[in-house]
């Protein structure tokens, strides 16, 4: 601190205080140049730099917005294409299943019908056979009775020399059959 503050401040008429910011003689110059420079800066920022930066920012925001919209549009399209691709596939699969079901049903019906037919046939054949059997048995029974009656008459005539009537022989045969 060798020099006095006042001698270094350089203004023409240094006033009492040695504290430069409080030296009032420089105030008019400071205010004047502050107003001039700030006014210039204000015009630059207000009229040129500000609008330009604002324009750039809005342009960028707009572009980003547009890109996002394009991307969303593309995604919507892709989803629609997927649906358009899958729908016929799904429909075709459904139709195939329907046809499949239909044929299986029809086949089952055919099988059932054929079974019923076969059952009916078999039943009829069985009934026929049984009827024929019964008839044959009945016939056989009468033949046997006739033969037995003849045989009985013959045997009696041989053994006794007597001739028995048909009715007697018949009754005897019936009695023997029933025993």
């Amino acid at each position: 601190m060798m020099a006095e503050g006042a001698t270094t401040t350089g203004t023409e008429a240094p006033s009492g205080a040695g504290f430069p910011p409080f030296k009032t003689e420089s105030f008019p110059s400071q205010i004047f140049w502050l107003v001039v420079t700030m006014a210039f800066l204000f015009v630059v920022l207000w009229r040129f730099a500000g609008p330009r930066i604002k324009g750039t920012l809005e342009e960028r925001r707009g572009m980003i917005q547009k890109e996002i919209e394009t991307a969303q549009e593309n995604r919507r399209k892709a989803e629609a294409a997927t649906v358009a691709y899958e729908t016929p596939l799904f429909e075709a699969r459904e139709r195939a299943r329907a046809i499949n079901d239909q044929y299986r049903e029809r086949a089952a019906e055919d099988v059932k019908k054929a079974e019923a037919q076969a059952d009916a046939n078999a039943e009829r054949a069985t009934a026929d056979a049984e009827a024929r059997l019964a008839r044959i048995r009945a016939e056989a029974k009468t033949h046997i009775a006739g033969a037995a009656k003849d045989a009985a008459i013959e045997i009696v005539s041989r053994l006794t020399g007597e001739r028995i009537s048909d009715a007697e022989a018949e009754a005897a045969v019936r009695a023997a059959q029933e025993a």
């Binding site: 601190m1 270094t8 401040t9 430069p20």
Partner: peptide
């Protein structure tokens, strides 16, 4: 060598300038 910490705040005229009786010199601050 003078080392005065307040010296850096001193306003020194570079180009003397007057408007009316106001001293609006172009200073180091300007």
């Amino acid at each position: 060598m003078a080392i005065n910490p307040m010296e850096q705040f001193a306003v020194k005229p570079i180009v003397p300038l007057h408007i009316g009786h106001y001293d609006v010199s172009f200073t180091n601050q300007s």
